[in-house]
Nucleic acid binder design. Sequence first.
DNA 1: CGACGCCTTGATCAACTTCAAATTTTGTGG
DNA 2: CCACAAAATTTGAAGTTGATCAAGGCGTCG
Lengths: 253, 253
Amino acid sequence: MQSNKDAARKTPRLDVHNSDVPLVCRACESRHKGVCGSLTPDQLVQLSKHTTKHVYRSQSELITVGDDVHTYSNILSGVVKLTKLMADGRQQIVGLQFAPDFLGRIFSSQSSYSAEAATDVRVCSFPKSVIEDLARSAPNMEHALHEQTLKELDEAREWMLTLGRKTATEKVASFLYLIASNIDPELDDDEHTIRFELPLKRLEIADFLGLTIETVSRQITKLRKSGIIELENNRTVIVPSLARLQGACENEQ
Amino acid sequence: MQSNKDAARKTPRLDVHNSDVPLVCRACESRHKGVCGSLTPDQLVQLSKHTTKHVYRSQSELITVGDDVHTYSNILSGVVKLTKLMADGRQQIVGLQFAPDFLGRIFSSQSSYSAEAATDVRVCSFPKSVIEDLARSAPNMEHALHEQTLKELDEAREWMLTLGRKTATEKVASFLYLIASNIDPELDDDEHTIRFELPLKRLEIADFLGLTIETVSRQITKLRKSGIIELENNRTVIVPSLARLQGACENEQ
DNA sequence: CGACGCCTTGATCAACTTCAAATTTTGTGG
DNA sequence: CCACAAAATTTGAAGTTGATCAAGGCGTCG
């Protein structure tokens, strides 16, 4: 997705040991990834002056609909869910974000969705104004944010196809495939078997797929009985063949 | 949505009669809107050197999945639908674009969806390289494109809620409300009644809503019988009260 | 242990789809 | 302008999928 065109825009990446890079950033896993990865040491210094790290416990809110947003964050670890709520309580998860995604609707003081920690989440936060000043003055910063937005848009549209046109089984398979691709999975000796923890509980999966919790449960059982997945426990999934799981995302009937 | 923060970034808008503005742009309805609206006369000149205008007939393809894209376009009039197709033929419209939207997945040579004219469409096209060079060298250009991407992302997520959690009637009402808000409607003497042409046929509405054509037809009939809309003919809709239509988008049962 | 949260399973029901056909609208050529 | 064919839409009846309602199981924590 990232093309070689981008490489030209980036300031040549300096060695991690370069003393220009601020201390907080030097040991950061996101240092070379996501938005931070395309910043110059100078910009990192400017940013790091206002950086704070936070841990959010699972199910706590990072951004509330309607509230003014004063910070943006880099996700260092964990999974964040973006949810929309209807007046009568119906809920839809409209996006999942993983490290090292950038969190926050830039150039807008209000969010039209809330962001909640699906798992425990560690973030590196920056005041809104610092990010926006940097975006205004540093084209590479705005470009990095733009790429992040484009990635989210591609993912949202892919999910629209899932929501609008896939069957319940295909939806659940698509969800498992999404997680398998985004969580760093343990690869088994038999290099084709992968294993991972689900970051969402059944109700959240239902809210992501536009289904009910019962239907999600039944489809998981169905995928298990058909041998496409195995369950070590409710949260731990083993995928013997990623190709077979992928096939289940779009079943020719 | 556009905030006053943006105003500061924009070069002060020059008078339309300013001779610096190229001829093709001077008479253009999009001149002050969309991406072009935030360009300087110099940038417009640079862009206009490579500008071509096209008309696409309804149902013709502007962008085909998998094909390399060599141009970006500004929509001058008409409606463009972005569609995704599954191997077995299931189809989902993942976005609708209206004038003066910018069309094309920037910074990527391939599109993961196709773009088709839903109605006759007039566009102003630019070679990919010119746009991307401009985006690289002119921060205000990239910012304008970024704002467009953010707007599309907000719309996509709003629609994910519709696809995932709304009933068939609510979906159709939401679609009509979307069109009423994006097509410039005729306002009746009685200032509350609005009237517009549907840019999509029933099958396309179904593909946008994740429904079948029959269900769409039945829901339209239902909305008509309940007095929320009137039909002048298959394509012409009259909305006596926009507030009532909005209410139908999210019905407390 | 007992209560609670979470997940699964079963039975029934409603919403939406599918299949089929009728009806209306649109386009074309004489 | 009419006749006719093709396309689009509507309507009806039956079938399916997934939702709802209800109950029970499992694991954790006080």
